[in-house]
Design a protein around this nucleic acid. Structure first.
Length: 576
RNA sequence: CGGGGCGUAGCGCAGCCUGGUAGCGCGUUCGGUUCGGGACCGAAAGGCCGGAGGUUCAAACCCUCUCGCCCCGACCA
């Protein structure tokens, strides 16, 4: 390919609105073009990279017996009603009508059609297990897309679905897929990633893991134990509680706290710590059910955990009038003295471990001291819905947890029969009995992976693509092509390399060296050859690795052989 | 959905407060001189000032409404 014909305009000036390194470089190098919020065109360089990433994904999926299919982007409402998800999924699913007035939707994930396919084609245990996957466009109408390709609305995703006769078989396959994912990311050149336990979210089902690329610009918060390697997304992270307080329970005592409502105000006013208080957090679940959460003042409620406990439905913070309707007073609320049958009372484990806490008196301007849940509350359900904090003890080994940020580049779920049962995707077992298939599902965001690779591999001048996914293998700069026959030598050399199967990007423009080098840096091709009258007069060509300072001089006629050697070496370093 | 900000030439921006025939840098085109880290000189092309309505003799500029985009948060994976 010639740079003069490459559809990729590089930018000298910093694009605005692109604080993320990957976003910035993708724009400056002409890799992507925004069409709308969270919707991008991938220009030729980016397309070549994603094609290579997809090739790696295909190889690894095929290696674990995957079969590639393509499912539709547009689906009818009826299909999604079969598993009960049409109503369950929120506005992130784009819905519309076709010309006949049928309710349609844009696929954001493909459990329904893949289950339909399995149901239609698989009837016997003899045919199982099976895995089908696709690499295809998804649309999620994100409330807020951001960061270039990191978080978009339309994106290409590899999604895979496996079907099994037993949970054991599914779990075994889940582990194979787990290993395949690690290979995919390593082959794509990514090093700094881990897997974490995660929430299953709208997918539902049992255990799930997310593969996270660790970076400060990540939008997920992860808790990591460096001692036992427990690691989990904030949404599911657990931690070990300290020993229960052995203090003697003192009698309840009402104290005046005029104008002091927040935990910080109350604890400061009374001269205690936030950990000596019990915080009331009120929610409304499914529009009518009031949920009263009591948690120690120094912790925050993890709403993902809360939603899981409450089950399906909408969850929002309660309004003041709804709180008053229970007889509680906003800012001075607690379950003490309230009719517990009128709401759902959830008591976090942190409360039960503590004694003599300060909590609301349900009276304007008053709190009570020496609240002890075991003594002062009747009813209520004990739960663990506190979000861990940095330094809290690991739930497995007790060592302090470390916090890190990450970008989710892949996830794997143990779905079980969440979709196969309602959709009657069944097989006949050896006893002739009909049973729902046990499923797993596995996703990788291709664009996110690309963006993550840049985040990991770049310098001030541009991306430094790993050879395994680089848009081209070698970038040939031809300085002063009209002088000293440089252009002719370049053409001959490029022809020779291309004939040998090398992917060459050649800068055939009559541009100054600085311009060519700057663009070459933005294109990030890992190997570079520089042809100039100066070098060629000595019969030499300069060879350079992108991102490294030094360079070597190679005799012209040795270039093809030496280059293929380097390419082979580079490629091998990304093989798993 | 809440908070903040921005829409003026392909890109980055000034002009708006204080209304009076639209400007700068980069890029692009043509001619010339240069030629190893974003050269220089000269000429030129390119804008319904996001859209609609209003105020005014006159609106990029003032007012109202709308659409789009960015950042932070909420939400989601």
């Amino acid at each position: 390919m010639r740079v003069s014909k490459l559809v990729a305009r590089t930018l000298r000036e910093d694009p605005k609105d692109a604080p993320l390194r990957s976003h910035n470089l993708l724009l400056r190098g002409g890799y992507i073009l925004q069409v709308s919020t969270g919707i991008y065109t991938l220009m030729p360089l980016a397309k070549r990279i994603t094609t290579k990433i997809e090739r790696i994904i295909r190889e690894e999926m095929n290696r674990i017996d995957g079969q590639e299919i393509t499912m539709p982007v547009v689906m009818p409402r009826e299909l999604w009603e079969e598993a009960g998800r049409y109503e369950g999924v929120g506005p992130e699913m784009l819905r519309f009508r076709d010309r006949n007035g049928n309710d349609m939707l844009l696929g954001m994930t493909h459990e329904e059609p893949v289950v339909q396919a399995a149901r239609a084609h698989i009837t016997s245990y003899r045919q199982l297990p099976v895995m089908m996957y696709q690499i295809q466009t998804k649309f999620r109408d994100e409330a807020r897309s951001r960061g270039g390709l990191i978080r978009v609305r339309e994106f290409t995703m590899k999604d895979a679905y496996s079907f099994h006769t037993t949970s054991e078989d599914m779990v075994e396959y889940y582990n194979r897929c787990h290993a395949a994912y690690a290979r995919i990311f390593r082959r794509a050149g990514l090093k700094n990633f881990i897997d974490v336990e995660s929430d299953t979210g709208m997918m539902g089902g049992g255990m799930s893991h997310e593969f996270m690329f660790l970076t400060d610009v990540g939008e997920d918060t992860l808790f990591i134990c460096d001692k036992c390697h427990y690691r989990a997304n904030r949404e599911v992270a657990r931690f070990a509680f300290g020993a229960a307080s052995a203090d003697a329970e003192r009698p309840l005592e009402k104290v005046a706290t005029p104008g002091h409502k927040t935990i910080e105000e109350v604890s400061t006013f009374l001269g205690v710590t936030a950990a000596d208080t019990a915080k009331a957090v009120l929610y409304v679940h499914n529009k009518t059910n009031l949920v009263f959460v009591l948690i120690r003042g120094d912790f925050e409620v993890n709403e993902t955990k809360l939603a899981k406990i409450l089950g399906k439905g909408e969850l929002r913070a309660a309004q003041d009038d709804e709180i008053r309707a229970l007889g509680a007073v906003p800012g001075y609320a607690s379950p003490v003295g309230l009719d517990v049958s009128r709401f759902t009372l959830l008591i976090d484990e942190t409360i039960l471990r503590s004694k003599n806490l300060v909590t609301g008196a349900n009276e304007e301007g008053f709190h009570v001291k020496n609240f002890n849940a075991g003594r002062d509350l009747k009813g209520g359900k004990t739960v663990e819905i506190a979000t861990p904090r940095e330094g809290d003890a690991c739930c497995e080994c007790g060592a302090p947890l470390r916090v890190s940020r990450g970008i989710e580049i892949g996830n794997i779920f143990q779905l079980g029969t969440k979709y196969s049962a309602p959709m009657r995707c069944e097989f006949l077992d050896a006893d002739g009995k009909s049973r729902p298939m046990i499923m797993g599902c596995y996703g990788i965001g291709v664009g996110r992976l690309l963006a993550s690779v840049i985040e990991e591999h770049n310098d001030d001048y541009g991306p430094i693509w790993p050879m395994s996914i680089a848009p081209y293998e070698v970038h040939v700069c031809v300085l002063d092509p009209v002088k000293g026959g440089v252009g002719e030598v370049a053409a001959r050399l490029v022809g020779e390399l291309e004939a040998a199967g090398v992917e060459v990007l050649v800068d055939d423009r009559n541009e100054k060296a600085g311009v060519q080098f700057a663009d070459a840096d933005l294109f990030g091709v890992p190997l570079r050859l520089i042809l100039s009258p100066r070098n060629l007069a000595q019969g030499m060509v300069e060879f350079k690795l992108r991102g490294q300072k030094g360079s070597e001089m190679w005799p012209v006629d040795e270039v093809p052989a030496r280059l293929s050697e380097v390419i082979a070496r580079e490629k091998a370093s990304y093989l798993d």
